[in-house]
Design a protein around this nucleic acid. Structure first.
Lengths: 113, 113
DNA sequence: GAAATGTGCAACTTTTTGGTTGCACTCCGC
DNA sequence: GCGGAGTGCAACCAAAAAGTTGCACATTTC
């Protein structure tokens, strides 16, 4: 299940407040440089750079050199892994709940042994 | 944007391989105990317990005492926060790409200052 | 009630993260 | 070509996360 591994990578990348707000800003503000992103952020440019590298490692972001500055932009493909995973879990949800209800409501099942 | 914070919490919880496989197993296998989940896992029961607590803290899992054992089951509500976030990012995606293309393809925009 | 099964709690160790600082390097404009 | 804006790299730090071990406590089951 390498698909799960890819999803975990994406989830990990999104599982940090600073990174998530970077993603949000890139989503609503287009391509931005690390310096631009660090303006207004509570952390230094270097911290932002590291976060961008994590995001890029997960395939969520892509960078492009533009003269002396480097612009980062969102990348859509990998996000689908995460969405697919969530959809899959949601799909099995109802059945899981149903099974739980069955186990819980059964008064005293003398489960083997 | 407290919604973003909630999403980050969920993403963080899902952003670990062990935790993600626990979620998968709970989704396809119904309610299971920490001991049952640790069977076949590469880590000890205690590690699994800690992961379950993280998942529960993010609202993704709920536990229920059942005699001497404790069963964990998936919980759907919070997952929507994550999905909503992903949808939101996806929505602004096209516009972002469009803006990036505009910036990149513009030969030499003498951006102010 | 004694042995076995399933948990809970706490101390502790080891990696990873998230973050910083300092400095060298590159590109742009004047 | 010089100064400044924008980066890149490396060393270093503190805190948190992941995992382990050991043992006490609860609940079955015989």
């Amino acid at each position: 299940m390498g698909r799960e591994r890819a999803a975990a990578e994406v989830f990990f990348a999104l599982g940090d407040g600073t990174r998530l707000s970077v993603v949000t800003r890139l989503g609503s503000g287009g391509a931005l440089s690390a310096t631009a992103l660090s303006q207004g952020a509570k952390v230094t440019r270097q911290a932002i750079v590291k976060h961008l590298q994590v995001l890029e490692g997960a395939g969520l972001v892509r960078h492009e050199k533009r003269g002396r500055e480097v612009l980062y932009a969102l990348e859509p493909e990998r996000l689908d892994d995460a969405r697919t995973f969530l959809d899959g879990v949601s799909a099995s949800w109802d059945r899981a709940i149903e099974r739980l209800r069955a186990m819980v409501e059964e008064p005293e099942k003398p489960r083997g042994r």
